[in-house]
């Protein structure tokens, strides 16, 4: 058992253009130049099974820190399944298991001493449909994650609520009605509330599973703007079936498709500009340009 608390073995040099030395006061301080920019995910030879069925096959992918990585591909290609293996949410499905290695800043997240409960505080998640807790107020929705760890000090909670709601660009709309139920908000506001809730526990990585698919165009735009705001402070992985969205919000894009025996696999991953203008693979080209069959 390697229980010793240690820094990651392979310290990643911060790419200079990412390390913003000065952050606005309502922003989370970006990493200082001497610190490690954390939140890099490296996936090697990942296979996901549901019982006998292999849903995802042999995926190797590096997700850079403090950037947005989009995952696109036809439905059923395993992109949501893949996303869920990054914070072990797939373990909720009975019979689901993974083979391969997923590291977060060099730590294998499937190591026996990694607690999935702790992992999910570092790797947060936003879901397809807004899912605020209906019996809780806006304030309580945002603080739900903090209260789990017994942090009840009012001033501290107040501060986190304001900071999280400002980061999720919702503060101005709800600051006067924090005691109202979270479900009283519009769909788009609810989704930003869920993003605020995910931010409140101070994660490094945020996984987004088609976060705008249940929203109308103007609410979708707000969420996309929000992603752009958050991209320098968090590692964001977004699954989307909307290629335009992927091209608008992401720095990198990974294209998945379904292969033999309905197992999803990664075709290629590259800078978003390159994927949408000059992909290396014919399959990607076909998908981007709408050819199939």
């Amino acid at each position: 058992m390697e229980t010793a608390v240690r820094r990651p073995d392979e310290a990643i040099e911060a790419p200079p253009e990412r390390a913003t030395p000065l952050a606005p006061p309502d922003r989370r301080p970006a990493a200082s130049p001497l610190d490690i920019v954390s939140g890099e995910i490296v996936v090697e030879d990942l296979n996901v099974y549901y019982g006998e069925f292999r849903a995802v096959r042999d995926v190797s992918l590096t997700i850079p820190p403090r950037a947005v990585t989009a995952i696109i591909g036809p439905s059923g290609c395993g992109k949501s399944t893949f996303l869920r293996t990054l914070n072990r949410m797939h373990e909720l499905t009975p019979g689901a298991r993974v083979e391969g290695v997923v590291t977060l800043d060099g730590i294998d997240i499937y190591r026996p001493d990694v607690d999935p409960v702790q992992l999910r505080r570092v790797v947060g998640m936003v879901f397809q449909r807004p899912n605020p807790f209906p019996t809780m107020s806006i304030y309580d929705n945002v603080t739900a994650g903090l209260r789990l760890t017994g942090r009840h000090k009012r001033s501290e909670l107040d501060e986190v609520v304001e900071r999280s709601l400002r980061r999720s660009a919702l503060w101005d709309e709800v600051k006067d009605k924090l005691r109202q139920p979270g479900t009283s908000l519009s769909g788009g506001q609810q989704q930003r509330l869920c993003i605020a809730r995910a931010l409140s526990v101070d994660p490094e990585v945020i996984l987004m599973d088609e976060p705008a698919s249940a929203l109308d165009p103007s609410a979708t735009l707000r969420v996309e703007e929000l992603i752009a705001e958050l991209r320098r402070q968090y590692t964001i992985v977004i699954v989307t079936h909307n290629m335009q969205q992927a091209s608008r919000v992401s720095d990198r894009t990974a294209f998945f498709t379904m292969g033999e025996e309905r197992a999803g696999y990664l075709v290629e991953a590259d800078d978003t500009v390159r994927i949408f203008t000059n992909p290396a693979e014919q399959l990607t080209e076909d998908y981007i340009s709408g050819r199939f069959g």
Partner: peptide
């Protein structure tokens, strides 16, 4: 800002639960 390392525990510590008490697990 002065180059002091931010008092953020290492990723290993954050993931292995060294930071929280055992109370919640119990």
């Amino acid at each position: 800002m002065t180059g002091a390392v931010i008092a953020q525990p290492s990723m290993a510590a954050r993931l292995t639960g060294a930071r929280v008490g055992r109370r919640r697990t119990v």
